[in-house]
């Protein structure tokens, strides 16, 4: 195959270019050809889509326990250390941003649109029409047992509050009860669930406000504390 009046189309190299494995002079030569050849431009675009989509077939592996926390800490560290932030072509790199606790205008606008479409669950209740929807809040804390992290507890407030417990493999298996200790000293029984040998995830809706929670604990059948998350 060749383009009218030019050098032959580099079929082999085009695939390698799409896969990102072509280098050096060969890459330069192919790019120069593609810049002039509409047929190869179209072919390259199609092959590149397939090459990228192949990554979707990669296996899903459970990230190590605490990965999420460590990653978020790393993002925060990057912010503190003053990493540059790419704001797109034509914009100079900005100094580090500060993590923002409130929804900034753009994200808020997007979410408001979603809520209006019924996609999200962030819109105000009927009696609160006209109020700005509150941002859902999440508190994520490691769940520890004997000084080791065995999972995490997440408390989510978005109109209602619910608590989610995720236990990894390190806790062992068996029936546990989950209790919440409130800041005023009260202890609230939240429910029971079975921890399997490969871990478990369990959630419950809370009547208490998230701000009242001091900790969540998992108790064994005899009532002994087997794991605690400080909230």
């Amino acid at each position: 195959m060749s383009w009218p009046g030019g050098d032959p189309c580099p079929a082999d190299a085009l695939a390698e270019l799409a896969l990102g494995t072509l280098a050096g002079e060969e890459r330069s030569g192919v790019l120069a050809h593609v810049a002039r050849c509409r047929t190869c431009q179209a072919e390259l675009a199609q092959l590149a889509v397939v090459a990228d989509d192949l990554l979707l077939l990669a296996p899903v592996a459970e990230a190590p326990l605490g990965f999420e926390l460590r990653t978020v800490e790393r993002l925060r560290a990057a912010e503190r250390d003053g990493c540059s932030v790419d704001r797109g072509p034509g914009h100079p790199a900005l100094p580090a941003r500060r993590w923002r606790r409130g929804l900034v205008s753009l994200a808020a606008a997007v979410l408001l649109v979603l809520a209006g479409l019924g996609i999200g669950r962030l819109s105000a209740s009927p009696g609160r029409t006209g109020r700005t929807p509150e941002r859902p809040a999440v508190v994520l804390a490691p769940l520890s047992s004997g000084g080791h992290e065995v999972g995490h507890v997440r408390v989510v407030t978005a109109g209602v509050t619910w608590l989610e417990v995720t236990v990894g493999k390190g806790l062992g298996s068996g029936l546990v009860s989950c209790v919440a200790r409130l800041r005023d000293g009260r202890v609230v029984q939240l429910g029971w669930f079975q921890v399997g040998p490969r871990g478990s995830s369990w959630s419950v809706r809370l009547d208490a406000d998230a701000a009242q929670l001091a900790s969540a604990q998992l108790l064994g059948p005899a009532g002994a504390v087997v794991a605690t998350a400080q909230l």
Binding site: L114, R121, A141, V156
Partner: peptide
Amino acid sequence: MVHGGFPPGEQVPDEALLAGM
């Protein structure tokens, strides 16, 4: 503790998350 975030299970589009980021 990590504060903030969207509720688990919310299908907020990737584009919205990236816009927020």
